[in-house]
Amino acid sequence: MLILGLQGSPRKGGNTDHLLGAFLDKAAQAGAAVKTIQVARAGIVPCKGCGYCETHGTCVIADDPMSAEVYGLLREADLVVAATPVFFYGITAQLKVLIDRCQTLWSRKYVYKLKDPLAATRNGLLLSVAASRGRQLFDGIHLTAKYFFDAIDARFSHALVYRGVESKGAIRKQDGLAADLDEAIQKTVLPLVRRKQVLFVSPTGACRAPMAAVMAQQRFGTRIRTGSGGWSPATALHDPMVRAMQRVGVDMGFRRPATIERALAGAAPDLTIVIGQHAAETAVPGVKTVRWSLPEPAASDDETMDRLRMEMEGRVEKLMQSFE
């Protein structure tokens, strides 16, 4: 599983950076894969407010890191951690740029009525520090975090906020910090890490494997974590398959085929499903493997893809009964 940290402070190495790093270090020790985006240095272009995403489902800015990488990471992550100092009772301008660009994900959810496969299990965590001690110091930040997490299909599950943290490195001396971090790990990370891991593999990882993986994730995500990959990954998901899933309200936008190594995210699966012509091969040595000799669809018309989707639903349902 992946935890994505959004380091929103323009001060690299400051209190916010340290707080996020301390949480992610503990998460990695618990068995999660972690990645940090230093938002101030990411080169994300601000939202134009043009409304393009509401009529097209994608952002009009197609050539910056947000479109090239960040949307995909937000979709891949099981837990998104937003970390920010308090600037004028709000989040930093740098983090706000990233959040504003998530209007695209809001549009896919509320305008196009598409549901991300991780929506039922993805969590959001807020980390924030402030030099002052005002009673309403974090009110605005909580509201921004609430609606940001909603837009990216994450449940706002926990927040750690600290007042009176001013000098560089002061957060390291914060009373109770270690206990707070341990509690946050217990609540937000361990329930996700402890799920069974199921890996779906097909030759290019572009059609059958990701279709099966998102079906299993959406249906059984509280008990399992799925991934999909290919021996020779394609550059993009099979578009007719993506459209077939959209016809039943499942959003596979911003996902890409992965290598088997990336799909594993550093953790060995409990079960591997090998689909298609490579069914005689072993994806992960030493791991229980189920083989589906389900051929690649001969055509890409809607009727063919819908038949594949329905057949895959039946296979996934029968397979997952073994986890009950």
Rank of each mutant, 00 (worst) to 15 (best):
Q94T: 09
D270R: 04
S300G: 06
N15C: 09
R135Y: 13
T92M: 11
A93M: 11
A130H: 11
A298W: 05
V80L: 05
S228D: 11
R195H: 03
W292R: 10
A244Q: 13
C207F: 08
K187R: 14
Q277H: 03
D251V: 09
P85H: 12
H238K: 06
G169V: 08
D116A: 08
P285K: 13
C50T: 00
Q186N: 15
Q136P: 02
A119M: 10
R133Q: 15
A170H: 14
L2D: 07
K48Y: 08
I171Y: 07
A213F: 08
E296L: 11
V214D: 12
V161Y: 02
I171W: 01
Q38I: 10
F149M: 02
P46M: 06
R255A: 01
T222E: 10
A42S: 09
R247N: 14
Q197N: 12
G227K: 13
I171E: 09
T188Y: 06
P285T: 08
V201Q: 13
P269W: 10
G49L: 03
T272Q: 13
D301W: 05
K113G: 02
G253S: 08
A279E: 07
G266T: 03
K35A: 10
G43I: 04
M211T: 15
E166N: 15
R194Q: 12
M305P: 03
D116Q: 14
P210N: 06
R291G: 06
M252I: 08
G253I: 04
Y162Q: 09
G57F: 01
T235L: 15
L237D: 00
Q217I: 05
G169E: 11
S228V: 01
L20Q: 09
R135C: 06
H278C: 07
G14E: 07
K113D: 11
I37Y: 12
N15L: 09
L294P: 02
T259F: 06
I185D: 13
E324F: 07
A263S: 11
A131M: 02
Y147A: 03
D139K: 13
P203E: 12
V248K: 13
T55W: 01
A83Q: 00
A258D: 01
C53G: 02
S67D: 12
A206L: 00
D100A: 05
R122S: 13
L19C: 05
K168A: 14
R41D: 10
Q321C: 10
R195F: 07
A130Q: 12
G43R: 06
S132Q: 15
L199P: 12
R247F: 10
L294A: 03
H56N: 09
A212M: 15
C53Y: 02
I185Q: 11
P10C: 01
Q186F: 03
G124K: 09
E166A: 15
H238Q: 10
M66W: 06
D251L: 00
R307E: 15
P85R: 13
K26F: 04
E261D: 13
Y147D: 07
M241A: 15
D239W: 00
V274E: 09
A30H: 12
G221T: 07
R172M: 12
L126N: 10
A154S: 07
R208F: 01
Q218Y: 04
A283T: 00
R243Y: 08
K146G: 00
G57R: 05
R223V: 02
A298F: 06
A216M: 14
I99W: 00
R307K: 15
R309L: 15
V189S: 12
H238I: 01
A216P: 00
G205L: 07
